[in-house]
Nucleic acid binder design. Structure first.
Lengths: 160, 160
DNA sequence: GTATTTGACGAAATAATATTCTGTATACTA
DNA sequence: TAGTATACAGAATATTATTTCGTCAAATAC
């Protein structure tokens, strides 16, 4: 289960291009995939409507907007039961600085990605908002020193 | 260092909107921020040229394109020296399935985000490509069971 | 094997949008 | 106070998206 829509080589090329550059004009895109503008647009629309393309986003330079600290945080809850998880997720969703939250296998229950202006702001955030969530048992932070790869292009290979 | 460009309230609003919806028309954007189209476009261009806006990307539904497995991987190297790190990064950059690579504090040296079609493909990838990198000492994988938050909108607050 | 339907395509016309241009007001500087 | 730079709105222009239409090819039915 999961996908059911069949993508041909051209569709995958479109997806690859739009992942790396969403602002390309339809005319340019059509050239790169070797079709005329009309069917190109039709394909893109189909990909959007089907939900394969979920959305489009601008990527910012965190340093330049004054967000100098990014971290990964492992959060363990006081119990893995449904109730605690729901409470945790609800609280996490309120915190804008937590930009990712994944439920994972392994010792920790959740992996968060957190962004703050600086270490002071980060500490404040963690103490006052995250640690404060009642169901949180343990938190372990890893500060990102530098990011060497942050590709927005996923590897597309699957079924012709 | 870091940022130097001053952003006013309108700029931050623009950034917020473009992060969550990069495909908005300039006319619509100008309405939402309360300016006419011309200066709105001027501001956006300025944000692009200054590098505050780095790029625009389409976000795909991983399930629908047949990428069912996402993981975080902690990688420790056989030594933290510059040479080993360079070797590691060079190899990692060749692997499309590794979409993120962060240098972090803590026990592990690097955190990777890896995407594959299924567990079998993931295992193959890790065994044949990642583990195979000579300078890699230890790898620890955490499979993402589900993602509850994956916001592309960073919290903008800083200096008026 | 032939007719028919369906889907995808290209070319051209149209509509919407981005982009440029010009003049004005406002804030900053000398 | 005069001068200058900056940001803005409104209108004209250029680009681009979008729609329309006719054609072709593959699949299906007869």
């Amino acid at each position: 289960m999961g996908q059911n829509i069949k993508l041909d080589k051209i569709d995958r090329k479109i997806l690859e291009i739009l992942q790396s550059n969403a602002k390309i004009t339809n005319a340019q895109l059509s050239k790169e995939i070797g079709l005329s503008p009309a069917p190109t647009l039709e394909r893109v629309k189909k990909l959007e409507v089907s939900g394969i393309i979920k959305s489009y986003h601008a990527k910012l330079d965190t340093d330049k907007i004054g967000l100098g600290v990014s971290t990964f945080v492992y959060a363990t809850l006081k119990g893995h039961n449904r109730g605690n998880i729901d409470v945790f997720l609800e609280e996490i969703n309120k915190i804008d600085e937590v930009i990712e939250c994944h439920h994972v296998t392994g010792s920790g229950d959740f992996v968060l990605k957190v962004i703050a202006a600086d270490i002071a702001a980060y500490q404040k955030l963690m103490l006052e908002k995250v640690s404060d969530i009642s169901v949180v048992d343990n938190l372990q932070s890893m500060v990102i020193l530098s990011t060497f790869k942050d590709s927005k292009v996923m590897p597309l290979s699957g079924g012709e």
